[in-house]
Design a protein around this nucleic acid. Sequence first.
DNA 1: AAGTCGAGCAACCGCAGGTAG
DNA 2: ACTACCTGCGGTTGCTCGACT
Length: 430
Amino acid sequence: MGRHSCCYKQKLRKGLWSPEEDEKLMNHITKHGHGCWSSVPKLAGLQRCGKSCRLRWINYLRPDLKRGAFSQEEEDLIVELHAVLGNRWSQIAAQLPGRTDNEIKNLWNSCIKKKLRQKGIDPNTHKPLAEADRNGAAPTISTERTSGSSDVNPSSTGALGNLSHLLSETAQSSMLLPVYDKNQSEAPHLARPKVPPKELFLDQLTTGHKSPSTCRSSGQTLYFPFQQPLGYSSESGSGDGASMNSLWFNQNDFNCSTISTVMPPVSPSALSTSMGLNLPPDNPRHGGTGIGSASVDSFYWDGTNPSSSSSTGSRGSNSLGFEPQSTSSILENSVFPWTDIAQEKDTRAHLGEELKWPDLLHGTFAETTIAMQNQSQSLYDDVIKAESQFSMDGMCASWYQNQQPQQQLQAAPDMYDKDLQRMQVSFENI
DNA sequence: AAGTCGAGCAACCGCAGGTAG
DNA sequence: ACTACCTGCGGTTGCTCGACT
């Protein structure tokens, strides 16, 4: 136990990652998955420790990262989740597909905290500052990691609002927020909608716009809403309790191939009751969870790598006291109109091609994945498993969906520029 | 133009839990 | 049961860059 052994090694690079390093890591993981992180630097030819590689991948290179400004809905959700979960950033991030715990943590510390204080709300207790002062400085939400459910303040109703509404509904339907089944080895935060980072750069390349502002709290919804949801209405974002539910389905990164891992932990009964869904009686689950089960038109990374999720999965404290229920099992309970999704996915993938996405998409990513499709599965299975799954079709669809709101905004955060420069360099070398 | 300050963000550090041998 | 290794998490640091003086 204790410090990672690699930390003792000398001559390892630290600090910011260069585009070349990013490219090496990206190429390696795209082709082989990460497997054992400690072996990644060596295999990828990097002078970094495995821990650093993992962090870089999770926080920056991972294909499903959303990036960009947080929407107001996301900020609200973070506040509400924080009221329940405290500083459990990973669990909060699990409810925000495409967002990392680090990103959320930074947003909280730099932005949301300040906003709450300005509104007279104690960011620790989520109670009015005056009341918090009267009760003393001790916050009701502990940051001690091993405290289990003790740091949860379910009675906190100040900023809880929508979440309490959701919880009351979900409790009745045996669901919980951080839902994952250890046996399924699918931790939500490791299984998010997969969108390639190239999407960001392609957007820059095609639109060439530059954001006049870097404000993360602009309220601009870069990735919301899901304009053509999965066969049901997403119009419930009215600002009341229903907005919580609508948020779950405003993930426009959604696609059929990733549905098993993307789907937020909402039970069918909750959906049907709160959203008026008519659930189909039988929905065969498309694709599979392993490389070997890759379908003809899409490739899956293995999302069942026990090593990548066992720790989180088992440690994920169910602070709400609900019965654990696997996301997969929920999905297998026939929540979605699968056929429609597949059709829409294909349509959007096609449209994505028309939008020159293939220039990048059909570069390294596509070549790699197509090659992997055609190669013997055993080439990789015996060596490494990736932590997540994604499909190229999903990428196309997601990108296409993301184009619309971004183009409408005519602006993107300046942060993309750095990414653009890096990726331009990277892809020029491919 | 130069200096200062603060916000935002990427990355590091240290610890804890899980797991295989 | 013990140990070593690996992964993941949360707190913290330090760098970058824009705003301001």
